[in-house]
Simulated assay, not measured.
Amino acid sequence: MKNNKQYLLLQQTDKKLEAFKDLKATVVPAKGWVNTFRTALKMSLRQLGNRLNIAPQSTKEIEEREANGTITLNSLRDVANAMDMQLVYGFVSKHESLEQMIGKRAKELATEIVMRTNNTMTLEDQQNSKERIEKAIAQKTNEIKSEMPKYLWD
């Protein structure tokens, strides 16, 4: 990577993601976390509502919004505080690291670029060998990873 500052930021962010890796396998309860914790604490809708200064029906609506994915982080934070808990959220990468994610995307782009050029050359009866194409893709991938151009995520 040409930009040391960008590389350092990438490394630091990857380090922060490490804390969430074990959570990848966590399954969200069907009724949501609010309902699960409230039930585990043997807290009624009325009791949680009182702690939130809202009606029991509004508490039920919060649980429903969480279960269907339309709740806000502020609402979740309020509920967590009312249950003497802390809301923590983050992202879990589908890859081993952000560098791996960038590498995958760079290879996709490089393949697209090289194959576009190769198709033009094929039409002109100047087709490259498979080895040459693979080498060109690898070189273009490294170039894209190094420069991290703005079009990387287009």
Rank of each mutant, 00 (worst) to 15 (best):
K94E: 05
V79N: 09
L98M: 12
G90H: 06
A106E: 03
K104N: 09
Y89K: 01
I71Q: 13
M83T: 08
G103F: 13
D78Q: 14
L87N: 10
M101A: 15
K94W: 07
F91V: 13
H95T: 05
Y89Q: 10
M85E: 11
F91D: 10
N68Q: 02
K104E: 15
E99P: 00
G103C: 03
S97T: 15
M83Q: 12
E96W: 01
G103W: 12
I62K: 07
G90Q: 03
G103Q: 08
N81W: 12
K94C: 02
G103A: 09
E66T: 10
R77Q: 15
M83W: 04
Q86C: 02
S93D: 03
E64I: 14
L76A: 05
R77E: 15
I71N: 10
Q86Y: 05
A82M: 06
E66S: 06
N74P: 00
V88Y: 13
N68D: 15
E99W: 14
T70A: 00
H95G: 01
E66W: 08
E66H: 11
G90F: 04
D78G: 01
A80Q: 11
N74F: 11
I102N: 05
M101W: 08
L76V: 04
R105E: 12
S97G: 00
N68G: 00
A67E: 10
E66G: 03
F91K: 07
R77C: 09
M85P: 00
H95N: 09
L87H: 06
S97I: 08
S75G: 00
D78P: 00
G103H: 07
N68E: 11
I102S: 06
T72P: 07
R65Q: 07
E99G: 05
A67Y: 02
S75H: 12
K104S: 06
V79I: 15
M85S: 05
K94N: 05
G103N: 13
E64T: 07
K104F: 05
V88C: 08
K94L: 02
I62T: 04
T72G: 08
E99R: 14
L73E: 10
E64D: 08
K104R: 05
A80Y: 14
N68C: 10
Y89L: 02
Q100F: 07
L73V: 15
Q100P: 01
L76E: 07
S75C: 03
A82Y: 01
R105G: 01
M83E: 03
A106W: 12
A80L: 06
L73W: 10
V92A: 04
R105D: 05
N81P: 00
R77M: 09
E99C: 02
M83H: 10
E63Q: 06
G90I: 03
T70I: 14
N81V: 04
E64C: 00
R77A: 15
E64V: 13
R65E: 11
E64W: 04
R105F: 11
S97F: 11
R105Y: 09
E96L: 07
F91L: 09
N74S: 07
A106C: 02
Q86S: 08
E64S: 06
V88P: 01
G90D: 08
L87K: 10
K94D: 13
L87T: 12
N68R: 14
L76S: 10
L87D: 11
N81C: 02
I71T: 12
G90C: 00
